[in-house]
Design a protein around this nucleic acid. Sequence first.
DNA 1: TATGAATGAGGATTCATTCAT
DNA 2: TATGAATGAATCCTCATTCAT
Lengths: 215, 215, 215, 215
Amino acid sequence: MPVVARHPRKPKPRWQRRKDARPEEIVAAALDVFVEHGFAGARLEDVARRAGVTKGTVYLYFKSKEALFKAVVRQTIVPAIAQGEALAQAFTGSARELLERLVREYWRLVGETALAGIPKLIIAEAANFPALTRFYYEEVVTRGHRLMAGVIERGIKNGEFRKVDVMIAAKLAMSPLMHATVVRRAFASCMPEGFDVGKYLDTHIDLYLHGIAKH
Amino acid sequence: MPVVARHPRKPKPRWQRRKDARPEEIVAAALDVFVEHGFAGARLEDVARRAGVTKGTVYLYFKSKEALFKAVVRQTIVPAIAQGEALAQAFTGSARELLERLVREYWRLVGETALAGIPKLIIAEAANFPALTRFYYEEVVTRGHRLMAGVIERGIKNGEFRKVDVMIAAKLAMSPLMHATVVRRAFASCMPEGFDVGKYLDTHIDLYLHGIAKH
Amino acid sequence: MPVVARHPRKPKPRWQRRKDARPEEIVAAALDVFVEHGFAGARLEDVARRAGVTKGTVYLYFKSKEALFKAVVRQTIVPAIAQGEALAQAFTGSARELLERLVREYWRLVGETALAGIPKLIIAEAANFPALTRFYYEEVVTRGHRLMAGVIERGIKNGEFRKVDVMIAAKLAMSPLMHATVVRRAFASCMPEGFDVGKYLDTHIDLYLHGIAKH
Amino acid sequence: MPVVARHPRKPKPRWQRRKDARPEEIVAAALDVFVEHGFAGARLEDVARRAGVTKGTVYLYFKSKEALFKAVVRQTIVPAIAQGEALAQAFTGSARELLERLVREYWRLVGETALAGIPKLIIAEAANFPALTRFYYEEVVTRGHRLMAGVIERGIKNGEFRKVDVMIAAKLAMSPLMHATVVRRAFASCMPEGFDVGKYLDTHIDLYLHGIAKH
DNA sequence: TATGAATGAGGATTCATTCAT
DNA sequence: TATGAATGAATCCTCATTCAT
């Protein structure tokens, strides 16, 4: 992108698109469209339009609709995983605090962002994309559960928590979040004006920690 | 199919008149196909074949693919609702017991049956079928939550449970079930041979009741 | 149709359909439907419903849609032809009078009746039913023209009319009628409330007879 | 197709970009097919093949079969109307001469060209396309009649013609032409080798002018 | 004879994909 | 690299026709 316009008579492109941004823009557009209509229901034309390009251009970067779909899931979720795990590394403090922190961060980083569409997509298309589903299950679900399981295990070890099956307890810590993530989009227009997500999280943390507490 | 043809001269009827049975058979077949592939990805031909009829027959009973889809959701869910509420009426005993009973019954009646496909369908197609989604939200989700909320309120009143926001607490009692319902199908082939649902339910009940208990 | 009901307990069929009437009823219904929608656009189901029977019944009397179509044209037009020629036989008086009489009778017997739909049908479907078209051309068009040509020839012979090509003059005597027949249906809803057909006929006769008159 | 391939390595393009030419080509092809088979009987595949494209291409330019049909009528007839009226403006000379000229021009511009198919189409499909029919009636039929009516009125004013209802007389001047237009296609294969259209027109003009002449 | 459920071929329409420009 | 015209396979849907009742 030239700082100084070298061809002043060419007035059109006020802002030049950096080549490298294209694929990301297309993936971002595709995420929206796939989430809204599902894989089969999504039209590449809509993806292209939303990305500000034409159908042909999509094929410059992605071999097929299927390849684009996979890219959407992988490229969107992989950075999120890294972010999640980095966060976990940095955690200090009691298991209770860590658990609460993880729950709130999940919501902040996934539940409220465009990422929230991915779980819905996987749920909807799992039968049609087994390999992708397996990838997601192993790289996201399981990893997420392990993260949480580690926290719970620590809490058991240091006497904060009761002795429970840690993997199951981890799932139970996450499932109200996952479910809210998925369901909120679906019922967005049905839910009473202000369903209070904050209170939902607070209550979940409260009930869960009370439930698992040693005492 | 008899190994020995007993009436060789009877030239096997090309089709049977089954007027009354047909619609249900088609709806049942369609439930499977829609759950597996989503609305857009489902082929009417597959529905027909699975129902043992031809494409044309589907159109004798349903005006369009969309009409069939709506029928699948409504006809499948409406009896389930009735069943659920009837069950609730009959409940007696402590709030703790009722809650546990409701959780286990939900799993028995929905989580483990073909009905489990409906929540997935709604999640996947909510954006494409707003009216149907609203119907489902009001007639199923909200009703289910109210049922559970009633139990919790009763527990609070009679001193079994702590004072919490009853609607939110109701959602939190259900969401691990809902989520498991949806996710189990998606990750069926990924999950380690024996993920123990029974233990998952037990642990949920245990943690939840501990969490909400007065003392 | 029994004048006295002999089976008073059977309350349904207030009027019994005489078997022999069925085909005619179906043909009459089919005429309407074919005229309205054309051959390809007509649905046998509509024909059946309008005839008060079911689709299957139509096939008891007609081998196929095509056969029904041909029957409609032939059965409707054949009696009309006979009627027309009988009328012609009976004509007496001057050629002028005969011509006027023929014009008015044509309108009365064809232009204003359900028969008027047939010319439209033939025009619309000629390309698809060459044999039927040829039949119509020879048995109806040509015969009609010959009838009129005979009158004109007589007028020329007896000095009422100028010497003209009789076949062409015959066509010209008929074409405003044929055209009005066809066009009136098409533009029925467009034409100003009261297009005066009577005046149209009067003027045609007036101009035509003036045009062909010897003096 | 050259007998000798001159550039054997050039792998013949599967298709050409012809954006501007396409719509007209498709409309022209569609005119033929619709005229031949009617709206319902026409197959888009045939239209496409005749236009040298594939089915999909038709949908690049026309939203539906119905839209294509309407475009055929409007685009084909509108230029013809303009042409007709321009011609009328330029007319000079006696009313008799004008009338004769109009009749002959109509035949030259419509009766003998592909345009002749349009009246047939309208007659056949009027019931199915009321809006289009109204458009045609107002923009073509009425306008044509007014044109002719003007000529006749002029003839009456300047004493060439008798006093008659001008609109009706206009219709009568046109109807043998319209009818011949429509009927000629229908009975093309039935009519005796050489039905002499020229003589038909001559005779019509002769009879009509005699009929309407003052003297 | 009459019914109408069931069939299945046929045609409209959509859209992922290709490719000349 | 980007475009978008063109393709054609896939799929919904209709309806003439058949046939068990």
